[in-house]
Design a protein around this nucleic acid. Structure first.
Length: 504
DNA sequence: GGCTGCGGGCAAA
DNA sequence: TTTGCCCGCAGCC
């Protein structure tokens, strides 16, 4: 049973998995000695034990769009995944990425959402249901017991990650701000124009200096769609770039792509982005600005560096890569079908191979392969995942052996993306690390690699002996995602980005 | 308006 | 009996 396999793997890393318990147990582990760091994107058959003081756990938050499901048990909150909303035509955005909206939790709102058009191609939107748990949606269970919040997930999400809740909220709030700032000047100009103009005062957007077609605006203007100025959800005070984005750029770099960057662990996988990062790695940019006090702490081992560059892409694979693959499958985009596959759009070289490397085992991603003892994990994981990948000879891999190597490595690292790490709060100091990560002086583009880095089990890589690396995976998953937003935006827009780390 | 939690009720396995 | 799912309601933001 997959759950067993996964649990074996997770038990090495997650405190919650170390203990034997089930969410339905009459008696839960009493007074856990440690707690897991909150994980925004739990995936697989995992269990975590959060502190009852953990705000996000208290709110039963999840990056996935989870809706409440009645399990007729007042002590256990059950939620099921709604999947992700994508463009029915699977249109590619300007940067090659794809639309992945967060389904509205409310049924009514969700129906309304699906009636909207794709902000990019105006095609219909499509809800991709989650079928990761024996054909049913992945379910999450929450249970408060004593000073601990027990979390158990059942199923492996078989769809791309949607926007996280924070992203969606941030985007909406940003949109509202934009609309407010947009209409206020309009009113002023309208009043002014009334003096010597026959222009109607209906506030029609056609009267506005918006260079885009009104219909585009109508679509884009819906708060349910990503908009330009997509804020970095993890950075509530990212008004700097919100402000710099006006309505005239709504259709510019499309909003959507930008949205994607808001969470590297979710969206970075897109080809151009990976490509950029790969280049950054090659230029010597530190992949660990958020994890190491200085670049000198980074092992000089070229393989290590190489691996990290892959690990960056790993995230991609573990999330958006899956998305791409899923989308491709979902819409019959496989190159074999004679249509240009995603990987055929651009020659991204090695990185593209990683980027487009799909996993063709939706039922059991490599991440759920058994995890060997800590000392041998890295190597063995590579081996096993290599085998796994060889099982499916992706067209892109046929081009080069190195590609295959890369894919294998990425798959192995991706495999650990969602593996929970044992969290020992007393041994960490996430805020410091985060602050460091958020330091403007540390905004080296390559730091995004840290996201992947931290999402890997420390035990798997002997190089990671830095005490500061004993942090929790998901704390980084969240925090560094924010960094992804920042760096992503910086990389693309080249604009200064100020924020504070209060949310951390 | 939307999110969230709760709970009644129904259907299928 | 269990599980999944629909629906309505209320509180909250």
């Amino acid at each position: 049973m997959p759950a067993d396999t996964t649990q074996d793997a997770d038990s090495v890393l997650s405190y919650g998995m170390k203990l034997t318990w089930d969410i339905n147990d009459p008696q839960m582990p009493q007074e856990p000695a440690h707690f897991d760091h909150f994980r925004e994107w739990p995936d697989g058959y995992v269990r975590f034990i959060y502190s009852s003081q953990e705000k996000k756990a208290q709110r039963h938050l999840s990056g996935w769009a989870m809706r409440n499901t009645n399990n007729h048990n007042g002590h256990i909150l059950k939620k099921s995944c709604l999947g992700v909303v994508v463009c029915a035509q699977a249109c590619a955005l300007q940067d090659g990425s794809h639309l992945q909206l967060r389904p509205a939790i409310c049924d009514k709102a969700r129906l309304k959402q699906q009636k909207k058009a794709c902000p990019n191609c105006h095609s219909a939107l499509e809800l991709v249901p989650c079928r990761g748990h024996s054909g049913y949606p992945v379910t999450n269970f929450w249970r408060l017991d004593g000073n601990a919040i027990f979390f158990q997930a059942k199923g492996v999400h078989d769809h791309p990650r949607p926007e996280s809740k924070s992203e969606t909220e941030a985007r909406r709030s940003a949109f509202k701000r934009q609309m407010v700032s947009f209409h206020q000047p309009q009113k002023r100009s309208s009043r002014e124009s009334q003096v010597g103009s026959t222009q109607d005062c209906s506030g029609n957007l056609n009267n506005m200096p918006v260079p885009e077609p009104p219909e585009l605006f109508d679509v884009t203007a819906d708060a349910s769609f990503p908009i330009t100025g997509q804020p970095c959800p993890s950075f509530p005070n990212s008004d700097v770039h919100r402000v710099t984005c006006d309505l005239t750029t709504f259709q510019g770099d499309v909003t959507l792509p930008f949205q994607k960057y808001s969470n590297p662990s979710i969206y970075l996988p897109r080809p151009p982005w990976n490509y950029e990062l790969a280049g950054l790695v090659g230029t010597g940019s530190s992949p660990y600005p958020t994890l190491y006090k200085d670049s000198s702490s980074i092992p000089d081992d070229t393989d290590w560096v190489h691996l990290n560059s892959l690990q960056y892409n790993v995230s991609s694979y573990g999330s958006y890569e899956r998305s791409l693959d899923f989308t491709a499958k979902y819409h019959g985009w496989k190159p074999a079908h004679g249509k240009p596959g995603l990987e055929e759009r651009v020659d991204y070289g090695q990185c593209q191979a990683v980027t487009t490397c799909p996993y063709y085992n939706p039922e059991r991603p490599c991440r759920y392969l058994p995890v060997p003892p800590a000392g041998t994990q890295a190597l063995q994981t590579v081996i096993t995942t290599t085998v796994a990948y060889q099982a499916y000879q992706h067209p892109a891999l046929k081009h080069s052996d190195s590609m295959q190597e890369v894919s294998s490595l990425s798959s192995c690292t991706c495999g650990s993306e969602n593996l929970p790490m044992p969290i020992y709060p007393q041994a960490l100091d996430p805020p410091d690390a985060v602050i460091q990560a958020a330091s403007p002086s540390e905004r080296a583009p390559g730091k995004l690699l840290g996201d992947c880095q931290v999402n890997r089990p420390t035990l798997a890589f002997p190089q990671e002996t830095d005490p500061s690396r004993t942090d929790g995976a998901d704390a980084w998953d969240v925090c560094l995602s924010g960094m992804g937003s920042v760096t992503g935006y910086l990389d693309r827009a080249g604009q200064p980005f100020n924020f504070d780390s209060e949310e951390f």
